[in-house]
Simulated assay, not measured.
Amino acid sequence: MTSFLEKWSARKSDKPKAGMRSAVDAFRVRVAEQKAYLAEFESDGAGFNKWRSTWFQRAPGGFGVTIGRDSIDAGQGLSYVVVETTAQVAEFLDDLAQHADNDVSFQKALEQNRLRRAALLNSAKAKVKAPAAKAATRKPATVKATETSQVSGEASVEKPKRGRKPKA
């Protein structure tokens, strides 16, 4: 029997990091989520309450379908369509997934969009951290309170404190 370390050390690898999925893979997952939402809507249209998460919405004449909430398009400015049936919504999502698999320019647009969103997120995080750094450089409130108590302490030497009135 071989030892545990000898057996498995040849297969040692680094763990995959969270969030390291490519932009195209992440887009495929989001399309799959949308197809699941569509199936849920088709099974119970009246009870469906996840409209805020969907890429499809009711529109005059059918359903409006957008390519996510991102500012990307599928080429030639195509980012929103209106279709008549849920079957056409499903067909659009299928074509969109196939487009993401085969169209190099669309894949580049997905990557650029991911980089743009990451930059926005990082700049927002930097803005949140900046006021905290400014607050640390300010004079702490406890120092101000001790300074004012020293002044009032000097004033108390001059005037006696008011005592309680005796009960009668």
Rank of each mutant, 00 (worst) to 15 (best):
R52S: 14
A23G: 01
H99W: 12
F92S: 01
A126W: 09
T85P: 05
T137D: 10
P166W: 08
E40F: 03
D95N: 13
G19I: 07
A26P: 06
E91N: 09
Q76T: 09
L110K: 03
L121V: 13
V83T: 03
V65P: 03
S149H: 14
H99K: 12
G64P: 00
R11C: 04
F56M: 00
A87W: 05
R138A: 13
D94K: 07
R164Y: 08
K139A: 11
L38N: 05
G45N: 13
V82T: 04
H99L: 13
R69W: 02
E111K: 12
R114F: 05
E6S: 11
F41A: 01
K17W: 04
P140H: 13
L5A: 11
G62K: 00
K12E: 05
W8T: 07
R69P: 01
S53G: 08
K144E: 13
D101C: 03
F48Q: 06
A155I: 10
P166R: 11
R162W: 09
Y80R: 06
Y37R: 01
A39E: 13
D44A: 13
T54F: 00
Q34I: 02
A87E: 09
K17N: 05
K159G: 07
F27T: 04
G153S: 12
N122Y: 12
T54V: 00
P166H: 09
K129M: 15
R117H: 06
S123I: 08
T142Y: 11
Q112Y: 11
I72M: 06
E154P: 09
V24W: 03
L120H: 09
S13L: 01
E42R: 15
V29Q: 08
A109S: 15
R52K: 15
A100C: 00
R52F: 06
V31T: 04
G62S: 02
V29D: 09
F48R: 07
A118Y: 06
T146L: 15
R69N: 04
L93K: 01
L120W: 09
T2G: 01
E91G: 08
G45C: 10
V157E: 06
A119R: 11
A132F: 15
T142W: 14
A133M: 15
E33F: 04
R162G: 07
P16T: 05
V24D: 01
Q76P: 06
S13E: 03
Q76K: 10
V31R: 02
